[in-house]
Nucleic acid binder design. Sequence first.
DNA 1: TCACAGTAACTC
DNA 2: AGTTACTGTGAG
Length: 709
Amino acid sequence: MSSVDDAAGEQGALLALDDVKPPAPRGRRKAALGAQEMASELPVARVLLDLQPAHLDREYDYLVPASMADGAQPGTRVRARFGAQEVDGFVVARLASSEHDGRLVPLRRLVSAEVVLTPPVLRLVRAVAERWAGTTADVLRLAVPPRHARTEKEPAPDADDAPATPAPASWAGLWAPYRGGEAFLGHVARGGAPKAVWTPLPGLAPALEDGGVPTVTHWAAAVALAARAAVTAGRGVLVVVPDARDAGRVAAAVEAAGVPDVVRLLAEDGPAPRYRAFLAAARGRARVVVGTRAAMFAPVADLGLVAVWGDGEDTLAEPHAPYPHARDVLALRSDLEQAAYLLGSPGRTAAAQALLAGWAHEVVAPREVVRARAPRVRALTSTELAAEGPGAAARIPTAAWRAARDALAHGPVLVQVPRTGYLPVVACVRCRTPATCDACHGPLALGSGTAAPQCRWCGRLAAGWRCGECGSSGLRAVRVGSERTAEELGRAFPGVPVRVSTSTAPGGVMDRVPGRPAVVVATPGAEPVADGGYAAALLLDAAVATAAPGLDGATRALHRWLAAAHLVRPATAGGQVLLVGDAAPGPTGALVRFDPGGFADRELAERIELALPPAVRVAAVTGDRASVAALVGRVPLATPEATLGPVDVEQDAPGDGSLFDGAPVRVVVRVPSQHGLELARQLRASQAVRSAHREPGTLRVRLDPEELL
DNA sequence: TCACAGTAACTC
DNA sequence: AGTTACTGTGAG
């Protein structure tokens, strides 16, 4: 036994018996062997360790060496011995004594004296782990970014004590058209914690007097005013958005609204800027944090408002265990920290609608206001076009070409295409069997050159492809991508610039385009804002959008269409939206009426009827058959009536074939919402048993799975 | 009688 | 997870 352990052992015994005595070094022997002195005040640190196994998910007590007495405060990063290994952790409390009745071992190292895990965030982390049946360590990894030592040592930037400047006069009254809008804002300004699900009006905010900020969307300006209200009340603000572009837009709007100390927190900026922004929040310098998903855990001090923009975008769903969704994490957080909650989106998910059942208020504008601000929307379905003759069945029917041409005389035209690429999905020309890769069975796509089809999963070229069913070597397009669409539009409108805004386009995703005539081809979520608004938008391949598998296909499609429609001028200014292709009637009608709330209301009613989420709480357990059975077998709430499956699931994502040992199956456990937390607890307990017993195989437990069926 | 594998327990 | 302590059966 090492000298350190020896000393600690005696210290531990002392601690276990009576209250801690300052650990006076007793005897030459220990001093000679290098025993450490322990802190004289609060010599015990309770630590959350970064341990993977579920059954180790609890706190452990360590002795605090005298050298760390001041530094190892709650919230700091430490390293400690755990069994034979040394692991990272966070101090969560300093105590006079421990309840542990074994020996205590001293902390090994104070990694940094920076307090990075604040008490409110710790409470949130615990609540998220519980609610999504995950481990605290997993959630901590999402909540606290990796340390960047150099950034930590940087001198604090000169405190620009820029006082808040007045809000732009032209933005006054942005919330006035909404029922409950001014009330919400006032409540926030008085330091209250109202909760709102908000359907913003489309279009752009009034231009600023000083012209300092170009084209700000109405929603971003409205969010900025809400942030300003909370800051006025002396509290902090957190805004979570789907991507960096939106973060830039909101941050610019908040600054334009005269609010100082705005910080962007984006994972994609890289470790140093990310940690810098995180530290600014942790040190209380940032009063408004605008960021993407991971920012939902940002340690904003005295949080007064959390806002989530773009519910319905899949980037708000955390892809790492335990897969919490920003919408729900922030709802939880707003309750835990008595902060206001604002959920806004062009569309509305069933989950957002469910928040209106007793938790949040709906903030929407009356119909006549919506009608006055929205563009005119037409659905060019094939029945509607039947009279038109040959052009009706085309991907872009004659009526759409005509509308685009007319609109181009007045400004830019947005063309939304569901997919990037040229011909991203191809099939056998004769029997229409989808063309797949011989090597990995991934889908084949055709590029714009004359090159051979290429696998979208493994990248292999399929030169000399032949249909596995009929032997034909000819290919036909099943889907047309943004590149090919841009090419067609360029030919159709010679002299008009065609710009492509997609992740794979040469220029990437564009933030903004000028108000001059141009065709702008974009994939959903990548639409640039046009100065002055688009004269028209064409939403192509509508049927593709609503045919997406899963419960949320229609909701998602409607969201994408509305998001594009938001960028178009009002009907009174000639703005027009054309939905092209036969989509499901539900979302089509909702787009024409510009009514995501009504759609979500019907959607939720249907789910209540069918006992589908979010009307019920659902957990999906995926893995090899034996593991799934064992895990679910220990969950009392998983009664036969509450359990669906197991069903075989195919792992269709490229390259995650090795995730599970055997053929994966999935069991779905479905319980009434009020039993949701208990279900999560039971699943967590069962996973702890599983890890303690070292049951073989691989498993994934997911609450509120986004994709079902 | 000792060996070593399979297993149960523990880690502050 | 990583490690150790502890059963049990088997060859010598």
